[in-house]
Amino acid sequence: MSYSVTLTGPGPWGFRLQGGKDFNMPLTISRITPGSKAAQSQLSQGDLVVAIDGVNTDTMTHLEAQNKIKSASYNLSLTLQKS
């Protein structure tokens, strides 16, 4: 079951990613910084990142996902799936 979260910026957003197409692993939330915008939302460590700002992550490399997140200036919309 997927869910959506919109973090209001600017960054830093307070989470780290792992995985990506180049690692043959789905993009997942690997760490959440305590007290951060991510920590105050529904994000959980281990959640799968399905889309970033409406763009499906199935074919994204780790770097492409990082760049997509960094390019979000004020709002960052994520679609996630609980692990």
Rank of each mutant, 00 (worst) to 15 (best):
M1A: 07
M1Q: 03
M1P: 04
S2T: 15
S2F: 14
S2W: 08
Y3I: 08
Y3R: 05
Y3V: 07
S4T: 13
S4E: 11
S4K: 14
S4Q: 12
S4W: 06
S4F: 13
S4V: 07
S4N: 11
V5N: 02
V5Y: 03
V5R: 03
V5C: 06
V5F: 03
T6K: 09
T6V: 09
T6C: 13
T6D: 06
L7K: 01
L7C: 02
G9R: 05
G9H: 06
G9W: 04
G9Y: 07
G9N: 04
P10T: 13
P10S: 09
G11Y: 07
G11N: 05
G11F: 05
G11P: 07
G11V: 05
P12T: 05
P12N: 06
P12L: 04
W13Q: 03
W13R: 04
W13Y: 15
W13L: 06
W13M: 06
W13P: 03
G14D: 04
G14F: 00
G14L: 01
G14R: 00
G14Y: 00
F15I: 09
F15G: 01
F15P: 00
F15Y: 02
F15K: 01
R16P: 00
R16K: 14
L17Y: 03
L17H: 01
L17E: 01
L17Q: 02
Q18N: 15
Q18F: 08
Q18T: 12
Q18W: 06
G19R: 03
G19F: 01
G20I: 01
G20M: 01
G20T: 02
G20E: 02
G20Q: 02
G20S: 02
K21V: 11
K21C: 13
K21M: 12
K21N: 10
D22A: 05
D22L: 04
D22S: 05
F23P: 05
F23E: 13
N24L: 09
N24G: 12
N24F: 12
N24E: 09
M25R: 15
M25V: 12
P26I: 01
P26G: 05
P26C: 03
P26A: 06
P26Q: 04
L27E: 01
L27S: 02
L27A: 04
L27G: 01
L27I: 10
T28R: 12
I29S: 00
I29K: 01
I29F: 03
I29W: 00
I29A: 02
S30V: 07
S30M: 09
S30R: 11
S30G: 13
S30D: 09
S30Y: 06
R31F: 13
R31K: 15
R31D: 14
R31L: 10
R31V: 09
I32M: 05
I32L: 07
I32R: 00
T33K: 08
T33P: 03
T33S: 12
T33C: 07
T33V: 12
T33R: 08
T33H: 15
P34D: 11
P34F: 08
G35T: 05
G35V: 04
G35M: 08
G35Y: 06
G35C: 06
G35W: 06
S36L: 06
S36G: 13
K37I: 11
K37V: 11
K37M: 08
K37P: 15
A38N: 02
A38F: 01
A38D: 02
A39V: 04
A39F: 09
Q40E: 13
Q40G: 11
Q40W: 07
Q40R: 13
Q40T: 11
S41T: 13
S41C: 10
S41A: 11
Q42A: 12
Q42T: 15
Q42V: 10
Q42L: 10
L43K: 01
L43A: 06
L43M: 15
L43Y: 01
S44N: 08
G46W: 05
G46E: 04
D47W: 02
D47G: 02
D47N: 03
D47R: 01
D47M: 05
L48R: 11
L48V: 13
L48S: 09
L48F: 10
V49D: 01
V49N: 01
V49Y: 00
V49C: 07
V49E: 00
V49K: 02
V50A: 06
V50H: 07
A51S: 09
A51G: 11
A51E: 15
I52S: 01
I52V: 06
I52G: 01
I52W: 01
D53Y: 03
D53K: 03
D53P: 00
D53S: 10
D53F: 05
D53I: 01
D53E: 12
D53R: 04
G54F: 03
G54C: 05
G54M: 04
G54A: 05
G54Y: 06
G54R: 05
V55Q: 12
V55M: 12
V55I: 12
N56R: 10
N56K: 12
N56I: 11
N56D: 14
T57N: 02
T57V: 10
T57F: 01
T57L: 02
D58M: 09
D58S: 12
D58W: 07
D58Y: 08
T59C: 11
T59E: 10
T59V: 12
T59N: 12
T59P: 09
T59K: 11
T59I: 08
T59F: 09
M60R: 00
M60K: 02
M60N: 01
M60I: 05
T61I: 03
T61G: 06
T61F: 04
T61W: 03
T61R: 05
T61Q: 04
H62L: 15
H62R: 15
H62A: 10
H62I: 14
H62K: 15
H62V: 08
L63N: 11
L63R: 14
L63F: 09
L63D: 12
L63T: 13
L63G: 11
E64P: 00
E64C: 08
A65S: 05
A65K: 02
Q66H: 09
Q66R: 15
Q66N: 13
N67Q: 13
N67P: 00
N67M: 08
K68H: 09
K68Q: 11
I69D: 01
I69P: 00
I69N: 00
I69V: 13
I69L: 10
I69W: 02
K70F: 07
K70E: 13
S71V: 08
S71F: 09
S71G: 13
A72I: 14
A72G: 12
A72V: 15
S73M: 13
S73L: 12
S73C: 10
Y74G: 15
Y74F: 13
Y74H: 14
N75Q: 14
N75C: 10
N75E: 15
N75W: 09
L76G: 03
L76T: 04
L76K: 03
L76R: 02
S77Y: 09
L78I: 08
L78M: 12
L78C: 02
L78S: 01
L78N: 01
L80C: 15
L80P: 00
L80D: 00
L80A: 08
L80Q: 00
L80W: 02
Q81G: 09
Q81R: 15
K82Y: 11
K82G: 14
K82V: 15
K82W: 05
K82N: 08
S83L: 12
S83E: 10
S83H: 12
S83A: 14
